Measured scan of single mutants.
Amino acid sequence: MPVRRGHVAPQNTFLDTIIRKFEGQSRKFIIANARVENCAVIYCNDGFCELCGYSRAEVMQRPCTCDFLHGPRTQRRAAAQIAQALLGAEERKVEIAFYRKDGSCFLCLVDVVPVKNEDGAVIMFILNFEVVMEKDMVGSPAHDTNHRGPPTSWLAPGRAKTFRLKLPALLALTARESSVRSGGAGGAGAPGAVVVDVDLTPAAPSSESLALDEVTAMDNHVAGLGPAEERRALVGPGSPPRSAPGQLPSPRAHSLNPDASGSSCSLARTRSRESCASVRRASSADDIEAMRAGVLPPPPRHASTGAMHPLRSGLLNSTSDSDLVRYRTISKIPQITLNFVDLKGDPFLASPTSDREIIAPKIKERTHNVTEKVTQVLSLGADVLPEYKLQAPRIHRWTILHYSPFKAVWDWLILLLVIYTAVFTPYSAAFLLKETEEGPPATECGYACQPLAVVDLIVDIMFIVDILINFRTTYVNANEEVVSHPGRIAVHYFKGWFLIDMVAAIPFDLLI
């Protein structure tokens, strides 16, 4: 008679799926529990143990900040960024110097990925580790590398530091407007667009060049630039800015003055950032001319202004700041037409079709709590990747769950009947059967004279019903998954307890 339990259901295979997918890609990662103190490590794979030199037993239950890997060259700011990422709910990448158990130093890129439950609360953290440099290539500990984003994938490793954006290309926007319009339909740009040429040739750093990471940081200074100062900065030398009595002219307006920039070969870094931020506020060169004239017309309804409409929906549905990093990277690809469009465009503009998908598509409701890094690593669709929660398995109709209350009560009843059979069957065979043979035949009273025979008949009927119930009862397979398919249940029961239950259900007393 089957006594099969499996009270692990309803099970959740999400954690096993993450481990299996990460292991298949030869990654070095740990999984931490966000619900406990210090976000203790609950799993670390073999790749991480080989990377740091510690065994799994030495890593388990330690804080996922990996303070046991810190050393003299470990930056405090990087460690603080990892700790801050564990307090938030967004994906974050941090470069930090770690030390192995043998004392060797290596520069590592740590990717902190939160995993949320159905309520939107962070319950786990996945920390992925990628070695960037070994100890002989690690720089000085005073050099802070965590304020910069990861290198873009479309640049060669040897040319990542030679990417320079020439400031004269930004200063000569109005001069290039006529050349853009003359391109017409034969050019790649839309009317009114501004073409910015980027020099990728390796050259020595000069005062006129600005690194790509500095251009990325310009967006942080746009908020500090007032509207009046932006307007004066875009007017140009024809209309000098008016300053109040006793007030000095704005240095932001002076930063885009061609006369002032041409007199000296070098520009201050602050002026460069502010000038680029001011130019980015204009949607095209037409807006710059309109600002000089004193009238700013409404933005025209053409394809170039609607190019950012799908980007707005993608940004609203993005799951991490990696989408913004990807957008900034692609927006700086050289030799393309940049349409400086305000994100607050007309909502009635139709979304044009684009061959290049900048932001990841909208994630469906079932995966809105899973970050983009987890979705990318697992390579699963929205119909396959579940949320991290207890999910009731989908069972067929008329199927009994093996952990249901009805099955528990039924098993206790069958257990009592088995005990009765084990006690009274030998007793009936030894004593009652002998008395029946010696006594007179009682054929007239039937079952009324033999109450134990009636009980034995009921017990046999219950055993037959138990066999039928076992054909529709779920079970737990070797992978700790609840199986509810009727065919698989029948095959599993035939290979197991079916023969024993059938022999126990045969009414031998009635056959004798």
Rank of each mutant, 00 (worst) to 15 (best):
4 R>L: 14
5 R>W: 15
6 G>S: 07
10 P>T: 12
13 T>I: 06
14 F>T: 07
16 D>T: 06
22 F>Q: 06
22 F>I: 06
25 Q>H: 11
26 S>K: 14
29 F>K: 01
29 F>M: 01
31 I>S: 01
33 N>I: 05
34 A>N: 12
34 A>F: 01
36 V>T: 13
37 E>F: 10
42 I>F: 01
44 C>E: 01
48 F>E: 01
49 C>Y: 01
52 C>L: 06
53 G>Q: 06
55 S>E: 06
57 A>K: 12
59 V>F: 01
60 M>Y: 14
61 Q>K: 07
61 Q>Y: 03
61 Q>N: 09
62 R>I: 01
64 C>E: 01
64 C>A: 15
65 T>E: 07
68 F>W: 10
70 H>R: 03
72 P>D: 06
74 T>R: 01
79 A>N: 01
84 Q>E: 15
84 Q>M: 14
86 L>G: 01
86 L>E: 01
88 G>A: 13
95 E>H: 06
97 A>Q: 15
100 R>Q: 01
100 R>G: 01
106 F>A: 01
108 C>M: 01
112 V>K: 01
114 P>W: 01
117 N>I: 12
127 L>Q: 01
129 F>P: 01
129 F>G: 01
134 E>N: 13
138 V>F: 05
139 G>Y: 06
140 S>H: 06
145 T>A: 14
150 P>R: 13
151 P>F: 15
153 S>A: 07
154 W>C: 04
156 A>E: 15
157 P>I: 09
159 R>C: 08
160 A>G: 12
164 R>H: 08
166 K>V: 01
166 K>Q: 06
167 L>A: 15
167 L>W: 15
169 A>R: 15
170 L>F: 11
172 A>W: 04
173 L>D: 12
176 R>A: 05
178 S>L: 04
179 S>C: 07
180 V>C: 11
182 S>R: 14
182 S>V: 06
183 G>I: 14
184 G>L: 07
186 G>E: 12
188 A>C: 06
190 A>H: 06
192 G>A: 12
192 G>K: 11
193 A>M: 15
194 V>Y: 07
194 V>L: 01
198 V>A: 05
201 T>C: 08
202 P>K: 07
203 A>M: 14
205 P>N: 14
211 A>D: 15
211 A>S: 13
215 V>H: 05
215 V>D: 15
219 D>Q: 04
224 G>K: 14
226 G>P: 07
227 P>H: 01
227 P>C: 01
227 P>I: 09
228 A>F: 09
230 E>S: 12
238 G>C: 15
242 R>Y: 15
242 R>F: 14
244 A>G: 09
245 P>R: 07
246 G>S: 10
250 S>M: 15
256 L>C: 15
257 N>W: 12
261 S>Y: 09
264 S>N: 04
269 R>F: 12
274 E>F: 06
277 A>W: 11
278 S>C: 12
285 A>G: 07
291 M>C: 04
292 R>C: 05
293 A>E: 08
295 V>F: 14
298 P>L: 07
301 R>V: 14
303 A>C: 06
304 S>T: 14
305 T>S: 07
308 M>R: 07
308 M>W: 05
313 S>A: 11
314 G>C: 10
314 G>W: 05
314 G>E: 09
317 N>Y: 12
317 N>Q: 07
319 T>C: 05
320 S>W: 11
328 R>E: 15
328 R>G: 14
331 S>V: 01
331 S>P: 09
337 T>C: 12
342 D>W: 01
344 K>V: 10
345 G>K: 14
345 G>N: 01
353 T>V: 14
354 S>I: 04
355 D>G: 12
357 E>Y: 14
359 I>Q: 05
359 I>V: 07
360 A>F: 03
360 A>E: 06
361 P>R: 15
364 K>H: 15
364 K>E: 12
365 E>A: 12
366 R>I: 12
369 N>H: 03
370 V>R: 09
370 V>W: 11
371 T>E: 01
373 K>N: 01
377 V>F: 06
378 L>G: 01
378 L>C: 05
379 S>L: 07
380 L>N: 04
380 L>T: 04
381 G>F: 04
